[in-house]
Write a protein that binds this DNA or RNA. Structure first.
Length: 109
DNA sequence: CGTCTTTGACCGGCGC
DNA sequence: GCGCCGGTCAAAGACG
């Protein structure tokens, strides 16, 4: 029931909804990995130049709602807080662990 | 105009 | 030795 997921004739994978975090990411690749049950894996990299942090997102073609986010490396700068306030930095600052996100996020459409 | 995103192709490493 | 997979880069197109 999403604007993209129009129950029509295409069963392709539209722009999957990815849970945003406090950092900025740039998608630099997407591949279908069958080594893990035929899943889609997206590769994100920190926008910052001195930031060697990387992010990998994988989801099942049939379960675009179940997105597995893998954070790799650590940021060299402070969080790029995309929102305004909120967000417990104490618990979010740790960008070095894999997180299992299961929420829909209407990103850019 | 600038910026960002997407896709394809290429390469390296590893396994058998 | 060869094949396969994963991972990254580049370019083009589209949009604000």
């Amino acid at each position: 029931m999403s604007e993209e997921q129009k129950g029509g004739d295409d069963d392709q994978i539209p722009t999957i909804t990815i849970p945003q975090d406090e950092y900025e990411w740039t998608k630099y690749g997407q591949k279908l990995i069958k080594g893990i049950g035929n899943k889609y894996r997206s590769y994100f990299r920190c926008k910052k130049k001195d930031c060697g942090a990387k992010k990998k997102v994988e989801w099942a073609p049939s379960n675009p709602s179940t997105v597995r986010v893998l954070y790799e490396g650590n940021h060299n700068h402070q969080c790029a807080r995309i929102d305004s306030d909120e967000v417990d930095e104490d618990a979010m600052i740790q960008a070095n662990q894999y997180d299992l996100a299961t929420q829909i996020f209407g990103s850019r459409n």
